[in-house]
């Protein structure tokens, strides 16, 4: 064969299992299949890291909001309309000149959905989960983040019911930028801790 998948091959085991579960739940009257479409639509188009970017940009421009965010992450995030599944109990941790925070879930793939959406594949991978706690500086280096040994690296293992969002440092040269412009500099990875917020364009 010219490539490694046959066009008439059966679906993968995972796809088959999902189809079987959906059929069973539907036949037992527990699920209207349109609800699955509504869920997929929600996380494909409405819930994602642009939500978290708005939280960060607000914190960068409003010191009172930032204080509330660090004190009560769930409540302050809800002020901007973001709440719910996998964000019920939020903790926001702040990067400073002295501390860099990195979020992981060594047990599975826990991730703050209302602010970041669904986790990227690498976040769920065994190598990231294992290495993020034992060699965070090495992992960060592979993501292009080189930190001085003067900077303390704090790894947050979301093993229990709390979900973590990193408040990245506001980039230099952004004085006078609007909240909307600042939100454009906030990347998904900067809110996981595997990246930094982007510098403003030239």
């Amino acid at each position: 064969m010219a490539h490694d998948h046959g066009h008439n091959a059966p679906p993968s085991d995972t796809a088959m299992r999902a189809k079987a579960l959906e059929t069973l739940l539907t036949e037992k009257g527990l699920l209207d299949p349109a609800a699955i479409d509504a869920l997929v639509e929600t996380y494909e188009t409405r819930v994602g890291p642009r939500n978290g970017a708005r939280v960060v940009a607000r914190a960068w421009t409003d010191s009172d909001y930032k204080a509330r965010l660090l004190e009560d992450g769930t409540g302050a995030i809800a002020e901007l309309g973001f709440s719910g599944v996998q964000g019920e109990d939020m903790v926001v941790v702040e990067n400073t000149d002295d501390v860099h925070n990195l979020v992981t879930c060594t047990l599975c793939s826990c991730y703050p959905w209302p602010t970041l959406g669904l986790p990227p594949i690498w976040f769920k991978s065994a190598p990231y989960r294992a290495r993020s706690v034992i060699d965070p500086r090495g992992v960060l280096r592979e993501f292009g983040v080189e930190l001085s040994e003067d900077v303390e690296v704090r790894v947050w293992d979301s093993n229990a019911e709390l979900r973590y969002l990193v408040l990245p440092q506001r980039p230099a040269g952004t004085e006078g930028m609007s909240e909307d412009e600042l939100a454009g500099l906030v990347t998904r990875d900067s809110m996981i801790g595997t990246g930094l917020a982007q510098a403003p364009a030239g």
């Binding site: 060699d135 900077v151 947050w156």
Partner: peptide, 15 residues
């Protein structure tokens, strides 16, 4: 957690 193989100036926060 990691003895002599630990990264310098690093720690883990867990719940």
């Amino acid at each position: 957690l990691w003895g002599s193989h630990a990264n310098a100036n690093s720690c883990v926060y867990i719940d």
